[in-house]
Design a protein around this nucleic acid. Structure first.
Length: 228
DNA sequence: GCGACAG
DNA sequence: ATCTTGTCGC
């Protein structure tokens, strides 16, 4: 109940079949317990490798607690709608490697706001059987009306007449963030959690911190290979 | 055929 | 995501 095998489709056709099969396991239910420990996971890329980092934070204080790193060869190209097959594997391994299992994981990408309702956050959540939330910097699918300029303003993100997430202002005057439930969470959970993680920047603290680490490691890796 | 298109 | 210098605004 904490680990399905990581799918490794060889092409888009197989990947789409995986997305459709995983949909049967998707659960959009309210977060069961109030999170005490949350995690954020992200990845950076070099010519042929992916550097994934997962970080643990106390919640709601957001004190950094621990991190885990996974570096491996990339096995899938970036194709819009199939991001989970490019960075998902390494990100999942990094989360599994954490010394403690978080109550919730935030990912840099979409949850159900996806053509097949199976974005990065949803896929990672199902494969790990953990509550997840998608926190993307731009839209993949759906329509929304621009929210007010103030922090906390939001509007519903609709796709095919269905509410799949929200366009949320995490900083006054800044571009919105597109949040959507991944697995075992709801749109309300996603908005509440993401907004509570906003600390003066558009990108929420857990994701910002993890993204920085990912880039530092990537540069170190490139320097190491070059001087070799 | 044209435009859209997470990271 | 990655490449890549300076520059506009608070």
């Amino acid at each position: 109940m904490a680990g399905l095998r990581i799918p490794r489709p060889k092409d888009v056709r197989e990947a789409r079949a995986v997305q459709r099969a995983l949909k049967a396991r998707l659960e959009l239910i309210p977060l069961q317990k109030r999170p005490k420990i949350i995690a954020a996971a992200d990845a950076a890329f070099t010519e042929d490798k992916v550097v994934a980092v997962a970080c643990l934070f106390s919640y709601p204080r957001l004190e950094f607690l621990a991190e885990s790193v996974v570096i491996e060869k990339v096995t899938f190209p970036y194709i819009s709608g199939f991001l989970a097959f490019r960075e998902g594997p390494a990100v999942i391994k990094a989360i599994r490697k954490l010394k403690q299992r978080p109550d919730l994981v935030i990912l840099d990408g979409q949850g159900i706001a996806h053509p097949e309702g199976m974005g990065l956050a949803s896929q990672v959540g199902i494969l790990l059987d953990m509550p997840t939330i998608g926190c993307a910097k731009s839209r993949l699918v759906g329509e929304y009306r621009e929210p007010g300029r103030k922090k906390g303003s939001r509007s519903v993100l609709k796709y095919k007449k269905r509410a799949v997430g929200a366009a949320l202002r995490t900083r006054e005057g800044a571009k919105v963030l597109l949040v959507s439930p991944g697995h075992k969470t709801t749109i309300k959970d996603a908005v509440r959690i993401v907004l509570s993680c906003a600390r003066g920047f558009r990108i929420i603290e857990p994701v910002r911190c993890t993204d920085r680490k990912t880039k530092v490691l990537k540069k170190a890796l490139e320097r190491a290979q070059k001087g070799k």
